[in-house]
Design a protein around this nucleic acid. Structure first.
Lengths: 387, 387
DNA sequence: CTGTTAGCGCATTCAT
DNA sequence: ATGAATGCGCTAACAG
């Protein structure tokens, strides 16, 4: 089998009996080309299965038609969903998405930026450490547009999208307070993350306003389930155990839920539970888990839009001019009130006809009345993805 | 602020007082360069913050240092985890990963291949339709190596990695049979996927061997929770309702679990449940869910290894020679026996010290004895990712 | 409307 | 051990 070299513009030009410029023009929309020539060239392109060489285009100063996406982890559902949306939007612009994961390591972050900056048209980043000086410096000096999301980038004139962690954290804490809980434990989360600090601030704000004693435990870094268990047990076994637990993030909530199960602690009767960040199955657990939900898809979409907006209105290479058209979009998270906070189990998302198994005893009857409480959120969709 | 053009080899050469060739040599390892010159050039590179232009390299026929990853969905935990591993390995080779999602649409798949083939060194793909002629044709004609995973590519001489869906499906069906269930319902899954067909075949094989009546229901496509509910209710309300349910995939299992909860059907007392593909929280639910678990990380790792193996031993452009060094790696899934199948709740993964809440009644005592049954699997790690 | 020409930044002969 | 020259495929002047 002979190695078939990829056809080039010259090949097409020769076959079509025209010059390379004409071919180039056809490729790029066919301005100033006669219909006949256009047709001829198009035919030649089809015959040769010609695909323009991106590398050459990039070399000519064109766009690479690729954007970079830097995230701590692509396995994290939050970022995975963001990535999916970003990818979809990017494709609508004919762009590829190069995904880089950093594992929250600053060095990897910088390394990724370096390897991306010369090969992509723009960068979307969820910074691990938003206050890192070197990160900000590196990003600011880039000649391509950068958009951050999830965690802010301080001190630079870069666009981004954020959710209001402070507000939503305050709201969920208030919700717990309204249930009458006085001792609310706040756990989990790397406290050196901006978002985490904001959430803690929200919790603190609500507690102070209600004149309740604070009880934050983020020491040192609650990462593993074991660490979470240790912290939980320490508090639960104390003289004045918490009446409610507010978990600062996803995994902590899940771990906490699991541990409480194993400990035989009834939720919410003995201890109420609420968490930041929704998760798949949060609505399927019994009790279902009350959470703050971030508008994941919207975050990804907005960030991508912000980037392509800047990308498209670059007259030439005026792109990098900092501070021009820069903005931060704030998106709203909202409460998804379910059962773990003490509210009654909400009405099932879809109504299932009443039903009775034939050959077994009558199933336990479930209350189907909706809660009259201040339910500001709706039930999760828990949209599953096919595999 | 002046637009600082990115420095080039010539800039470095001038500053270092050498020729561009020397700079190039230094960049590529520094063969045949005197130590002094090497040092000088290195210093110049550092001063200018020089980063070689990938596009130019690619244009010169070098590798693009980018690989393509084509998956149905990156939001799907299975593919997200694969992607994470792939990305990590790719970086160890200095490669970027361009992720493309197809949403299981054949046209998008082809489109993605076209847009990738000229810009990447190799492609990793989880085909949506493994028997598509046009897909196979397009992939075969590519001049870059291709590795498939999850779903096989038939008729081409392309490497790939698969798990044995047939065997694992048979094993889990047998496990249910050993519990004494005779009427086992098999639901969910797009039956036109190779993996799904294999799983159904495994179920069928086990049932036939046990001389039990088949009960497969995949019609038409069980996608939404509503459809799943409809199918479930139809069977449960029948004269001879199933004693166990085997779900062919992730989302179906989750939906089924949820629906059974809502129906008030007790699992496993009234109906046992088992599913293909593990999921986060499967071990945290009560009852925990028995599943077949695929070695996700290993799949991703193996696929990536396969690709880079071919990539590295390309003397020049002999890469595409089909059938050379081609192989399919088979990985084993295994059963993770939990409670929903009827086995007793397994011992908690980590032992938590016995514990008693101070100001409330004694928690229900949980049996902590392990099951003596044929537990071939271990408890999930449910490794959470930071966010 | 169309063709000719000159680089984009780099690796690479082939000289020295 | 080093450098000058060449071309990868494409697009953007600049003629015609």
């Amino acid at each position: 089998m002979k190695i078939k070299r990829q056809p080039t513009v010259s090949d097409v030009a020769r076959l079509a009996g025209v010059g390379t410029t004409t071919v180039s023009r056809v490729i790029n929309g066919g301005e100033r080309v006669s219909p006949e020539t256009f047709a001829a060239v198009t035919r030649a392109i089809g015959e040769l299965d010609f695909v323009p060489n991106m590398a050459a285009r990039v070399l000519k100063g064109e766009q690479s038609k690729t954007i970079g996406l830097i995230v701590p982890s692509i396995a994290d559902p939050f970022f995975a969903n963001c990535a999916e949306v970003v990818q979809t939007i990017a494709r609508s612009y004919g762009c590829l998405v190069a995904v880089c994961v950093t594992g929250n390591e600053a060095s990897l972050e910088l390394e990724n930026i370096d390897s991306l900056c010369r090969r992509v048209d723009g960068i979307l980043i969820a910074p691990s450490n938003s206050s890192s000086k070197s990160l900000n410096a590196r990003l600011s000096s880039l000649s391509i547009p950068v958009v951050y999301f999830d965690q802010p980038l301080s001190g630079t004139h870069i666009s981004g999208v954020m959710t209001n962690n402070y507000e939503s954290s305050r709201a969920i804490t208030n919700h717990l307070l309204q249930h009458g809980y006085e001792r609310i434990l706040c756990i989990g989360g790397e406290a050196d993350f901006y978002t985490m600090r904001e959430r803690i601030r929200g919790y603190t704000g609500a507690m102070k306003a209600a004149k309740k004693a604070l009880s934050v435990d983020t020491a040192p870094h609650i990462r593993s389930k074991e660490e979470t268990a240790e912290v939980l047990i320490r508090h639960l076994a104390g003289r004045r155990p918490p009446q409610a637990i507010y978990c600062l993030k996803n995994t902590t909530t899940i771990h906490t839920y699991d541990i409480l199960q194993q400990l035989g602690v009834r939720v919410p009767q003995q201890v109420a539970l609420a968490g930041h960040d929704d998760f798949l199955l949060a609505s399927s657990l019994r009790p279902s888990v009350t959470v703050v939900r971030q508008p994941v898809e919207e975050i990804g979409r907005t960030a991508a839009r912000l980037l392509f907006e800047r990308l498209s209105r670059l007259p030439e290479k005026v792109a990098a001019k900092p501070g021009v058209g820069t903005k931060t979009v704030h998106l709203e998270s909202h409460l998804v009130i379910r059962a773990s906070c003490g509210c009654r189990e909400a009405e099932p998302a879809e109504s299932i006809p009443s039903f009775r198994l034939r050959n077994v005893g009558p199933p336990s009857t479930r209350s189907r009345r909706g809660t009259g409480a201040a339910v500001r959120g709706s039930a999760t969709t828990d949209k599953g993805k096919a595999h």
